[in-house]
Amino acid sequence: MLFPVLVMVLLAGPQLGLWYFAHDAAEAAAAAGARAGSLDDAPAGAGRSAAEAYLAGLGTGTITDYRVDEARTATSVTVHVVADVPNVIPLPGFVPVVDVAVAQGLERFTTSENP
């Protein structure tokens, strides 16, 4: 009767580690995408492409699936990453997910005549 609870407690550590790593990776990918998308004259989709390239470089063992969206306004770009984390805990319906969004102001150059 105590065995299932013990197994869950023992697997909670690795599950938390996988979630934490996936969160850091998704946040770094979103930040890289926001940086790329905020550059002066960056084409539409540059942030999404940069974030996807970052996540593709991680391999497939740490993040099983991911979705990247980029939203632009006149003054900022936001890159939103949703990543699925590998499931270690055998609970039905338990699907660990990471959801991160990073916003950054668009780069613009000013002069003393045009602030």
Rank of each mutant, 00 (worst) to 15 (best):
M1K: 10
L2K: 06
F3H: 08
F3L: 13
F3A: 15
P4T: 06
L6Q: 05
V7K: 09
M8K: 07
M8R: 00
V9I: 15
V9F: 14
L11K: 05
A12C: 10
A12R: 06
G13F: 14
G13I: 15
P14Q: 08
P14A: 09
P14G: 09
G17Q: 11
G17M: 11
G17S: 12
L18K: 09
L18M: 12
W19R: 06
Y20L: 15
Y20V: 10
A22I: 00
H23S: 13
H23K: 11
H23M: 10
D24K: 13
A25D: 03
A25T: 00
A25G: 05
A25P: 02
A26V: 01
A26C: 01
E27F: 11
A28E: 04
A29E: 06
A29I: 01
A30E: 04
A32E: 11
A34Q: 03
A36M: 10
G37M: 05
S38H: 04
S38F: 03
S38N: 06
D41L: 12
D41Q: 12
G45L: 12
G45H: 13
A46D: 10
G47A: 07
G47N: 08
R48H: 06
R48C: 04
S49Q: 11
S49E: 12
A50F: 09
A50E: 04
A50M: 11
A50S: 14
A51T: 02
E52R: 09
E52P: 00
E52H: 03
Y54E: 03
Y54K: 06
L55R: 01
L55W: 05
A56P: 03
G57M: 04
G57Y: 03
L58I: 07
T60V: 05
G61N: 14
G61M: 12
T62N: 11
I63F: 02
T64K: 11
T64Q: 13
R67T: 15
R67G: 08
D69L: 10
E70K: 04
E70Q: 06
R72K: 05
T73G: 09
A74L: 10
A74H: 06
S76D: 15
V77R: 00
T78R: 08
V79N: 01
H80I: 02
V81A: 00
V81H: 00
A83V: 08
V85S: 02
N87V: 11
V88G: 00
V88F: 14
I89R: 03
P90S: 07
L91K: 04
P92V: 15
P92F: 12
G93N: 10
G93V: 07
F94S: 10
F94V: 10
F94Q: 09
F94C: 12
V95W: 08
V95L: 13
P96H: 05
V97P: 01
V97F: 00
V98Q: 01
D99Q: 06
V100N: 10
V102L: 02
V102E: 04
A103S: 14
Q104E: 15
Q104W: 06
G105P: 05
G105A: 13
G105T: 12
R108E: 12
R108W: 12
R108D: 10
T111C: 07
S112P: 05
S112M: 13
S112N: 13
E113R: 13
E113S: 12
E113K: 09
N114W: 09
N114D: 11
N114C: 07
P115Y: 11
